[in-house]
Amino acid sequence: MQRSNTYVLVFTAIMTVVIGGILSFTSQVLAPAQKKSVELDTKQSILGAVMTLEKGDDALAIYSTRIKSMVVDIDGNLIDKNRKGNPIVAEEVNILKNYKMDAGKREYPVYQYMNENDPTQIEAYILPLYGAGLWNAIYGYVALEKDLNTIKGVSFGHVQETPGLGARIDSKEIQVRYQGKTIFDESGNLVSVVMLKGEKKNPSLFGTHEVDGMSGSTLTAKGLNAMVKDYLTCYESFIKKNQHQ
């Protein structure tokens, strides 16, 4: 049946209003739950750099007792206000937004992992990372021991690396390879830790600044190396300041 143009227009207008209403209602109702999910996810991945969370662990509770966070600038100085002049919360600093900015203007969160028995003792520093993999963004956290040289652990994530190849960076198997490596050489120069090409699966073959590669994903590894190096460089002032305390 051919309807008049007026009918079509009125129908469309009503449909638009109804659909728009449903969608904004859903979005409003679910917003608090979504915010909580995102928060939980962020805290889980921060903790993931220093510990293995089991199913059923209350990540939020562990986080609130073990992590003390702060934000520094490129020179390693503490900042307490964000760009709008409001008090800054490290967990709310958007790493992606900062990544797109000039390195000198970024806000750099530092998550301090405190000792379980003595909450005034810092056990590790967890620093966020962000960079480009082969197909899309990669990100993660690197945890440094309190000497700010030895890597305690890392956790990496990716948006879209090749499954089975580059996507393996999010597996524990790859991440444990970083444990115990150091980021400074003997004379105190930042050399970072480099993932090599090829996969030998023999940990004894690698130096203190090298880790085994992932077979078939040299380009993801290249992005990974650049990301780790870039961010460690940005945090270098902070690291140097706190190493000598």
């Binding site: 659909i19 449903i22 969608l23 859903t26 979005s27 679910l30 739950a33 979504q34 999910s37 995102v38 939980l40 996810d41």
Partner: peptide, 16 residues
């Protein structure tokens, strides 16, 4: 509309 609702619900209750 239905897909967006599903996706939003998933984001809220099963973020992983």
């Amino acid at each position: 509309t239905l897909v967006t609702v599903v996706s939003e619900v998933l984001k809220a209750y099963n973020y992983p």
